[in-house]
Design a protein around this nucleic acid. Structure first.
Lengths: 189, 189, 189, 189
DNA sequence: CATGAATGAGGGTTCATTCAT
DNA sequence: TATGAATGAACCCTCATTCAT
């Protein structure tokens, strides 16, 4: 890894932590630099500006998560198996890098509109799986979009409760319960 | 309503709209004043500062929502009826004042820690109902907190999807489907 | 004069002096504020930004000078009398507010392109007078534009020499000599 | 020409173009380097800093122009012939390298004070010629300095008009007219 | 009660320059 | 020699807040 790359990674890590703790608007470039152990100006060698830093942080991982979720579901057959794989994947992602996942949830409001239409996102991956289940007659819900909201809501609010300390400990042990909840909500037999 | 009260309400309404559209940090006092049709300085006659404005906006309605939800569930007997009333109430709240509900979701991260311990919130109301259902043997879930996350997730993510235009139209027509989803996820017989 | 107007004038005067002494790019907003006896932020209540300050300073006086020169020539008949009036006017302007005139010369490069086409400027006023003299057969030069450059060159370079201290004392006593030079260069009989 | 010299010339040419187009303060070292096809740091191997680059650019050519003008006038006898040679020389200089001449006009404000007293400059060359004409009784003007301003004004403002596109085409075809104007303004018979 | 001028701290960003590689 | 990462000061500008009017 080149010298510059190390700095860039330090900037990204520091920014991530601060953004999660204080929000994007609440975090200054000066502060990011200080935590990264460099000076403000150095950030601008690696990013065109604060906006680009936020966007790169979001887009890289958002796309990556989508791709990983998609790979997990594609390896399975049937809605139950696909959902099982995705939920477990989600829990693993969370436990691997909680800060990153919280960041993605935090900034999606501002960044999601920049994602180009038709791009694969965690939401579209989930939607496609559910729509597939409907088409195959495996689940019985009136609308795939609505059902997608339910599944994502169950997963994300569980994660959110951990943020507020209403739930503690890692996510992975909760995977079984989450899979059960998701299958029930979708009305699988 | 006194003259001063009218101004105060204008400030609160303007702030609410702007906060939802641009975020709290992204909205300046100058801008709030302009939309309210007054000047910056006048705001400080009604609020100690921007923070207090945000807090008053949050806490008033947050408590109010909690109280209303609690009244709705208290009037019913049995988990199914209680949940039905609360979900329909939530949908009505959303349709009545979408901006307000979005605001509460938006700022909860920063404000929730200021809510004094033991206070009644929408979350605690929902938790108590679910815990009651568990105690009464009406539902079969391992942990009331976890189940609370599921129910809130289903409701809030549905609202969130409306924000992103993945779902359209009012919430109330979706109440039946939401009640069904919630009951299934809780494993009621 | 309202309180705010006083401050605005102080800002404009301070900026003018500093711009002339150090150039526009070489003068910071902080410095302007300090010389004006206020803080940086106060400047932005009176001007949208540094650019607007420069533009207002330039355009106001540039247009004003043009109008005054035009009035002076319009009151006279014949190229000789018109030129005489304009040259004396120029000398008076210079002696009245040397800083202002130097500023106009200094920034014209950057600002002149913002002047809307067809607007009256000192250059167009002079051009019109000379073109009139050509049409009337009073002077014998091949091209009005070229002759306009000569006249303006004589006047402005004389002013420039004062900036470099190659010439000293007020301009007005030089008016006779300047008028003579201008008439000779135009080939009046 | 050594390899290093080639780079140095590229830097000087790039800087010249950018300075003329954007001003000295408006042009960054980073930008100069990019246009020259090198990196920022490399500039500092050839120049102590930006100031030295500007100064070297100015002084070299300013002195050179003075020397060339002086040689031209020295080869002639009589004010008329000397002036004729200098004006034609000026036109040739302009047509040969317009960018360079514009640069000299642009930065003279800031750099002229660094020229050591007694040094030969285009201004002093012109002054000496005119003073010589006065002493010889060939021209009749009250003050050599004033007359120098007139002659330089005629020449430089003509060049300036070309910058503003009020005059177009090369300078050389205008030489006859310029010589005529200069001789008239000096009152030669 | 309301105004809007002013403050002072901080925002994101660019700059000329230095220096390890 | 040349690179480009890094510095640190300065840039223009916006902010929440105060206060004389």
């Amino acid at each position: 890894m080149r010298a510059g790359e190390v700095t860039k990674e330090k900037i990204k890590r520091s920014a991530l932590k601060l953004f999660v703790a204080q929000g994007v608007d609440g975090t200054g470039v000066r502060e990011i630099a200080k935590v990264a152990g460099i000076t403000e100006g150095a950030i601008y060698r690696h990013f065109k500006g604060k906006d680009e830093l936020v966007w790169e942080l979001f887009n890289t991982h958002h796309s990556d998560y989508a791709a990983q979720l998609d790979a997990l579901q594609a390896a399975q057959t049937g809605i139950a198996a696909k959902l099982d794989a995705m939920v477990r994947g989600f829990c693993r992602f969370y436990d691997d890098d909680e800060t990153l996942l919280r960041f993605l949830l935090l900034v999606q409001h501002g960044q999601l509109s920049k994602v180009k239409d038709g791009a694969m996102t965690p939401v579209t991956v989930m939607y496609d799986v559910i729509q597939g289940g409907i088409d195959a007659g495996e689940i019985n819900v009136p609308d795939a979009n609505e059902a997608t909201a339910w599944i994502l809501g169950i997963l994300l609010q569980t994660a959110t409760f951990k943020t507020y300390d209403r739930l503690t400990g890692p996510m992975t042990p909760r995977a079984d319960a989450l899979v059960g909840a998701c299958l029930r909500v979708l009305g699988t037999s």
